[in-house]
Design a protein around this nucleic acid. Structure first.
Lengths: 190, 190
DNA sequence: AGACTTAGCGAGCATCCACTCGCTAAGTTA
DNA sequence: TAACTTAGCGAGTGGATGCTCGCTAAGTCT
């Protein structure tokens, strides 16, 4: 016999998982509560017991997804390998969902307001994770920080287009050029 | 007394202009035909005389917007100035609308199918425009092409976030770093 | 001028969707 | 065990939205 809290958290988790799936494959606007409930195996009434409205459900999903973004990039990789790893991370479902919601926030004032704390958390967290990624024994400057913003933003853009008009060869070539450009900043030049 | 064709093209133009405005401020999904008609000063019946369904209206808008993307970056600018110019271009309303629709296409199969030709056109066109941007008297290689993809994709990503959590100082610093990174590829090193 | 085609209108229709509400069942407290 | 609280259900509701259809007005052919 499960306790009430256990029941509760179990269904909430199922709902959040389901929302993640549905947002990923349908997008923010087309994520209906009916679809989420079907995916989660929960009734609509059950959903609204835990979330006051649809938006709350999506914001909760965003917060949970952002929390998992703590990039665990293994240390000691070469530059190109690190970039590949980062690309996979950016293309992962949680990250896609996160961006879907942040994008939607641009034209939805209420969503934007509710998402603000999660966004701040996200920036703090990724900032910290990225600092940990610094090559040991070399100074980590503002320019490194800026370079990483460039990389991440580039990868985000690439991921967006990759789904509509995929071109792996082009992506690979671009990644190599990116590694070349970053070389003087990140690698030893013996 | 205007001819029928003049009447027709006039209202179609008004509808497309209106769609551009509405998509920009509400996003793809929230762009209702009612809102477009109100903005254009056309009745809903009038709209559906020219477009079989909502999607057709949005696809037409996308095509028209993409056609105007032929980047007319003035030649002879320094690297940093060129980047600033490009950033303004990326942040312009037509480009924002274009990306809004391409993004939406990821999770909307029908939209994606209808948008495919415009997308191909777009890539052809921007490819040509970018080649024209090549510094005179220097060879234009695949690496330059790749570098430009990086720049444009970065700027797209930046523009997306800039609306939710603006930080002009950060953007400026990043742009300078970007210019530094691109320096060996684009500028003479005397 | 008269027959015909096309542009534009706007009330109305079918559908979908977020959310409500009264109910049962399950767990909790005394 | 008995009173109470909480989880979950699902039919029902109101509102929004894409689209239709019959109409009038305006332009086009002979």
């Amino acid at each position: 016999m499960p306790t009430q809290l256990e029941r509760r958290t179990a269904t909430v988790t199922r709902l959040l998982d389901a929302t993640e799936v549905v947002v990923h494959e349908r997008g923010y606007a087309a994520t209906t509560v009916a679809a989420v409930c079907a995916e989660a195996g929960v009734s609509q009434g059950g959903l609204f017991r835990h979330f006051p409205h649809r938006r709350a459900l999506l914001v909760a999903t965003a917060a949970r997804v952002a929390e998992r973004q703590t990039a665990d990039v293994p240390a000691g990789l070469g530059l190109l390998e690190s970039l590949r790893h980062l690309r996979d991370l950016v293309r992962s479902r949680p990250n896609q969902v996160w961006h879907e919601l942040v994008r939607a926030a641009r034209t939805d004032a209420e969503l934007r307001a509710d998402l603000a704390p999660a966004l701040r958390d996200y920036h703090r967290r990724t900032g910290a994770a990225v600092a940990a990624l610094a090559p040991t024994g070399r100074p980590w400057t503002d320019r490194h920080q800026a370079a990483l913003r460039i990389v991440v933003n580039y990868l985000d853009g690439e991921a967006a287009v990759a789904h509509v008009l995929p071109d792996p060869a082009r992506d690979e070539a671009t990644l190599r050029t990116l590694a070349d450009l970053l070389h003087p900043l990140f690698e030893e030049t013996p």
